[in-house]
């Protein structure tokens, strides 16, 4: 089947999509967007997190046909080409990236947390927001640093 979907603000069409295929497969294998990562395909790791109509979801658990006519934003779409979003910049500066496999999903999820927080979220809020994103390398401390840094820059200092 054919799936029409807006990805990072651009209308796109994927052809020959198998009906049981996931949005993640469509993004990576049919639309040339390998940012969202495929690790578990069962919703456990969060490395495939993308925005669907503005809400972060696991792309591996969305059936391709379910995104017909909807809006998807992937990590590639958070900033204009060649630039970095504050969250991306903070991950680099804080040393929150090691192998990098978890990074795109964490960045989208952290982006959503920061967009919906009035100021700098506290540790409990950050941990809760990132509970579905696994990282096997960093031990999470630098990731928390990166989220606090990006939140402070985007939303002003903690109140």
């Amino acid at each position: 089947m054919r799936v029409n979907v807006s990805v990072n603000g651009e209308p796109m069409a994927a052809d020959d999509v198998w009906e049981g295929e996931s949005l993640l497969y469509v993004l990576r294998e049919r639309l040339g967007l390998p940012g969202a990562k495929n690790a578990c395909e069962q919703g456990e790791c969060g490395s495939c997190t993308v925005y669907l109509d503005g809400t972060p979801v696991c792309a591996c658990l969305v059936a391709a046909g379910q995104v017909e006519g909807r809006d998807v934003v992937t990590v590639e779409g958070l900033a204009p080409a060649g630039e970095l979003d504050e969250v991306q910049r903070a991950f680099v500066e804080a040393g929150a990236v090691q192998c990098g496999f978890c990074t795109p999903g964490l960045i989208v999820q952290a982006h959503s947390l920061i967009e919906s927080s009035p100021g700098v979220p506290d540790d409990a809020e950050i941990r809760e927001a990132l509970a579905g994103n696994l990282c096997r390398c960093t031990g999470y401390e630098k990731i928390l640093d990166a989220v606090r840094l990006a939140a402070a820059r985007k939303n002003g200092p903690a109140s």
Binding site: E19, G20, E41, L61, V62, A63, G65, Q66, E68
Partner: peptide, 26 residues
């Protein structure tokens, strides 16, 4: 299929293929 958080896990892990998916999202 609504949220797909059960249905898609089954399909991805090849624990059985539905004959058809009836998408309730729209």
């Amino acid at each position: 299929i609504q949220g797909g958080t059960d249905v898609m896990v089954e399909i991805n892990l090849d624990k059985g293929r539905p004959a058809a998916l009836l998408d309730l999202n729209p």
